[in-house]
Design a protein around this nucleic acid. Structure first.
Lengths: 144, 144
DNA sequence: TCAAGTTTGTATGTGTTACGTACAATTATT
DNA sequence: AATAATTGTACGTAACACATACAAACTTGA
C-alpha cells in the first residue's frame, strides 16, 4: 500500500485538503495536551479574549473569533457553568452582557496559556522565523 | 484602529488560531458552494479516493485521510445509503470490504470535482504559483 | 415622537466530525 | 494450535456550526 502522497493522487493539488489536514493535526495535538485542563481551543480563546477585554459582549467575541452567535452562546454557557466566566449586564446597553473572568477563570487561563506556549512551540519548531511570518501572512489572506 | 489584529491582542501570535480561522473560512465557503450537491468535504474526498483506487478498503481510507475508523464508517455508510458507494467483500481478505462507486456516484463525483475546481480557484487566487508551493509545503510539514 | 427596523441574547433542533470502547470475524504470528 | 493483530461494526459522548424563532432593548427616520 503506497504511503501518502502517491495514494492521494489528484487530491494532492487540493489546497483545501492540506489546510484541513494541518488543522486536524494541530487540533489533535491540542486535544491531547489539554485533556487534563479540560479546555477546548475555543474555550481558551474565549477566556483569553475576555481577559484581554474585560466587559466584552458575546457579539464581540463572535465577531472577533468568526463564530456564530449560537455557537458563542454554547461556549460562554459552558464556561459560566464551570464558574470560569461571570456575566453582568452592561450599564450602557441593557441588551448586552459584560463578560469577566472569575478568580478561578484567571488561574485556569494562566495554566492554559502556559500549555499553549508548549503547544505552539511544538507547532512552530518546524519553521524558521521568516517562514513563520510568511505562513501567518498567507493564512491571514485566506480568512481576510 | 485596525479592526481585527488589535482586538486579538496576544492571540495574534498563536499560529494555531490562524490555521483554525483559515480552515473555518475554507470550510464555510465550501459548504455554501456544495449546498445543492449535498456533499461535505469529507464525502467528496472519500468518493474521489474510492474512484482513484477501486476496491480500496475503509482502513486505507482512514489512513490516507487521517481519520478514525469509526469516523470513516459513518462517512462510508452515509454514501452507501445514498447509493453512491457500493461495498463488496474482498476476495483476498474476508475481513476487508472493497469500495466502489456506483454510476450515480461517478456522475455526482464529476459534478463535485467541477465545483471543487471553482472552490479551489477562489482559494488559490490570492497566491502566486511559488507562494502556493511554499504554502503547501509548509502545511505538509505540520501534518507530517 | 412614534412606528419600524436592528441588535443582542436566548432557546431549540439538526447535522457533521472525532474519538472511545467493546465485540465478532478473519488473518498473521509464534 | 494458541495467541496476537487487523478489519469492520455498533454503540455512546462531545464539540462545533448553523438555521430558525423569539423577546427585550436600542436606533432610525418620517
Amino acid at each position: 500500500m503506497p504511503a501518502d502522497s502517491s495514494a492521494l493522487g489528484g487530491l494532492n493539488d487540493i489546497l483545501g485538503l492540506h489546510i484541513r489536514r494541518a488543522h486536524g493535526a494541530v487540533q489533535r495535538h491540542f486535544t491531547e495536551r489539554f485533556a487534563d485542563l479540560g479546555l477546548t481551543q475555543k474555550q481558551v480563546s474565549v477566556l483569553w479574549l475576555a481577559s484581554d477585554h474585560p466587559g466584552i459582549a458575546q457579539t464581540d467575541l463572535a465577531r472577533t473569533l468568526d463564530m456564530d452567535r449560537a455557537t458563542t452562546m454554547a461556549i460562554v454557557h459552558a464556561l459560566e457553568k464551570r464558574e470560569l466566566l461571570e456575566r453582568t449586564k452592561s450599564a450602557s446597553d441593557a441588551r448586552r452582557v459584560a463578560l469577566a473572568l472569575t478568580a478561578e477563570g484567571r488561574a485556569l487561563l494562566r495554566d492554559a496559556q502556559a500549555a499553549i506556549g508548549e503547544h505552539e512551540r511544538w507547532l512552530k519548531e518546524r519553521f524558521t522565523g521568516p517562514e513563520l511570518a510568511t505562513l501567518t501572512e498567507m493564512l491571514r489572506r485566506i480568512y481576510r
